[in-house]
């Protein structure tokens, strides 16, 4: 996995000369991709928590949402740089820019909600439900609302960059992709995914260790839980 990351980072700069300003593509697209996957993982963890009430799923879900938000911010920032170069403005209310801002608000609110609840299992229930709600709103924005005929976007279709619409304003994508560009993009995607996966694993492990420590401290301060002691002939 580490090899993939190093490989992607070493390979990418080597190919940068090809795409002029479009070189940022190798960062922008993987960031958007990683955040989409992370939000899916977060919602999956949320649903699994609600079904099983196993706190580990909540930790996985929260860690994924955190990474999703981080990469959304990175995608927005790199997108803004690209927009400045390609369209001459940092922010020009392209529908995809508008909607990604809303997605950031959604997941920002998720963390605000998490922070406002002290009790662990209630926090888990509430954030699991909210993260599922947020995913649906985000998917609705980024994949359904964006396809409306009148919401004309300057972005190419995100699903298959190789068949991207020919777009006057993004020279890097004119005429589809060169094979070597595609190789770099794919390896960058793999690298970013690997990096995000590694970050997610670390975060989950940290949370798990913290959770393991908490009851130990609790037990030290409290004698123990209550147990039933049947008296006067209870058939226990």
């Amino acid at each position: 996995m580490v090899m993939v990351i190093i490989g992607a980072f070493l390979l990418t700069p080597a190919m940068q000369g090809l795409g002029e300003a479009g070189r940022i593509l190798y960062f922008h697209v993987p960031c958007a991709w990683v955040s989409t996957v992370a939000y899916l993982v977060a919602a999956y963890g949320g649903v699994r928590y609600l079904a099983t009430r196993n706190l580990d799923f909540d930790r996985q879900s929260a860690a994924a949402a955190q990474i999703g938000l981080l990469f959304t911010v990175l995608a927005t920032a790199s997108g803004a740089v690209w927009a400045q170069i390609a369209w001459g403005k940092w922010w020009n209310w392209d529908p995809r820019q508008t909607f990604i801002a809303m997605v950031m608000l959604l997941y920002g609110a998720y963390f605000a909600l998490r922070l406002s609840i002290d009790q662990i299992d209630q926090r888990a229930v509430v954030s699991s439900a909210y993260v599922t709600f947020a995913l649906v709103a985000a998917v609705f924005l980024m994949f359904i609302a964006i396809r409306l005929p009148h919401t004309s976007t300057l972005h190419p279709s995100p699903v298959l960059p190789t068949q991207a619409d020919q777009d006057e304003d993004s020279p890097s994508l004119k005429g589809g992709m060169e094979p070597d560009m595609r190789i770099v993009l794919m390896s960058s995607l793999a690298g970013f995914t690997g990096l995000a996966y590694w970050m997610w694993r670390v975060q989950v492990r940290v949370d798990r260790l913290a959770a393991d420590l908490a009851p130990a401290q609790e037990a030290a301060s409290l004698e123990g839980a209550t147990t039933a002691h049947p008296a006067s002939g209870a058939d226990a």
Binding site: Q119, I120, D121, A211, P215, G224, A225, T226, D235
Partner: peptide, 24 residues
């Protein structure tokens, strides 16, 4: 029967049985 609130366990291992007309 047991119940925890977060990391705090308030009850554990309660077992009993109760029949019609009984008061416990």
């Amino acid at each position: 029967l047991g119940r925890s609130f977060g990391a705090r366990r308030v009850l554990r291992d309660v077992s009993f049985e109760l029949g019609a007309g009984e008061v416990v």
